[in-house]
C-alpha cells in the first residue's frame, strides 16, 4: 500500500541468439512502482521499448505465482534475485519493494553449458527433461496401479518425499553452482522417489541412469558449496545431495544396470 515510485538503471544482457555474442546494455526506467513484481518491471520496460520501435527484452515467464519454474533471471549476481530478497523466491515473486530509487540492477541469464542461451535472458533447459526421462519416475502404466492404500507410508518419509518433490525445475541451482552442477535437481527427484515404497524396485537403477545422464549432458560435479540450496525458491535442502550420494555409492554394489545400457 505504501507505494513509491523509483527510477532505475538496468544493465541487461542482450544476446540475439545462441550463435551471436552477447553484451550488457544499459536502460533507464522511471516510474517503477514498489508494488510491481520484477517481471512487471521488465514488462514496463518492454512496453517502452516497443513503442520506441526497439526490440523488447526476451525473458521466460508463465504462471507468475512461483510454481511453474519457467522464469529465471540472475539479478545482481544471484539467481532469482535471492540476494535482494529476505525470503526464498522465484524471479516472478520478487517485488520491486526490495529495491530503492536510483539502484543499478544487473540482469543476466542462467549461465551453464548444458543451458545454452536462446535469446537475451532465455535459456534452453531441456537437459532437465532428459534427466527425468532417463529414470526420474516410477514405472507404472495407466491402469496397473494397486489400490492406493495397499502401501502405508510413514508420515515422516512422506513429508521428506514431499519436501524434495516441490522442486519446480527452474534451474537456479545450476545457475548458482560454481561448478554448474545439476546435483540438487537430481537429488530432489532421487530423494522424492527413494522415500516412498513405490520407488524402491527401481531405486538402484534410477540413480545410475539419472547420474549418468546428468554427467553426459555436461553438468559438473558437486563441491558441497551450498549455493544451490541457498537460492532454491522451494528451499530444497542440501542434505538431499547427501541422499543422492549415499544411493549412488550403494548402487555401485548392486547389479542393476549391469547388463545393457538400454536396460
Amino acid at each position: 500500500m505504501s507505494e513509491n515510485l523509483m527510477s532505475l538503471t538496468l544493465r541487461i544482457w542482450r544476446q540475439p541468439n545462441a550463435a551471436t555474442a552477447g553484451k550488457i546494455s544499459e536502460y533507464k526506467l522511471a516510474g517503477v512502482s514498489s508494488d510491481m513484481s520484477f517481471l512487471e518491471m521488465l514488462d514496463m520496460l518492454n512496453e517502452e521499448l516497443t513503442v520506441k520501435g526497439e526490440e523488447p527484452v526476451a525473458f521466460d515467464y508463465d504462471c507468475r505465482e512461483g510454481i511453474c519454474g519457467m522464469c529465471g533471471i540472475v539479478i545482481n549476481g544471484v539467481p532469482h534475485g535471492r540476494g535482494n530478497s529476505a525470503v526464498a523466491t522465484t524471479t516472478c515473486q520478487l517485488h520491486m519493494r526490495n529495491f530503492k530509487d536510483g539502484d543499478v540492477i544487473t540482469i543476466e541469464p542462467w549461465r551453464a553449458t548444458p543451458f545454452p542461451i536462446i535469446k537475451d535472458l532465455v535459456v534452453d533447459r531441456r537437459a532437465f527433461d532428459k534427466i527425468i526421462a532417463s529414470g526420474g519416475y516410477i514405472s507404472v502404466n495407466t491402469g496397473a496401479a494397486p489400490e492406493a492404500h495397499a502401501n502405508a507410508v510413514s508420515k515422516l518419509k512422506a513429508d521428506r518425499a514431499f519436501d524434495a518433490a516441490t522442486c519446480v525445475g527452474c534451474g537456479a541451482c545450476v545457475a548458482a553452482c560454481p561448478n554448474h552442477s545439476g546435483m540438487l535437481f537430481v537429488a530432489a527427484k532421487i530423494t522424492h522417489l527413494a522415500m516412498l515404497p513405490q520407488g524402491q524396485p527401481e531405486r538402484p537403477l534410477r540413480i545410475k541412469t539419472m547420474i549418468g545422464t546428468h554427467d553426459e549432458l555436461g553438468f559438473a560435479g558437486c563441491q558441497n558449496a551450498g549455493e544451490c540450496a541457498a537460492v532454491c525458491p522451494k528451499e530444497i535442502p542440501l542434505d538431499t545431495i547427501a541422499q543422492l550420494n549415499r544411493d549412488l555409492i550403494a548402487s555401485l554394489f548392486n547389479r542393476a544396470g549391469k547388463s545393457t545400457a538400454a536396460e
Partner: peptide, 9 residues
C-alpha cells in the same frame, strides 16, 4: 490409485 503408484506424495 494411479497417482499414488506414481509416487505423488
Amino acid at each position: 490409485d494411479q497417482c499414488v503408484a506414481q509416487g505423488v506424495p
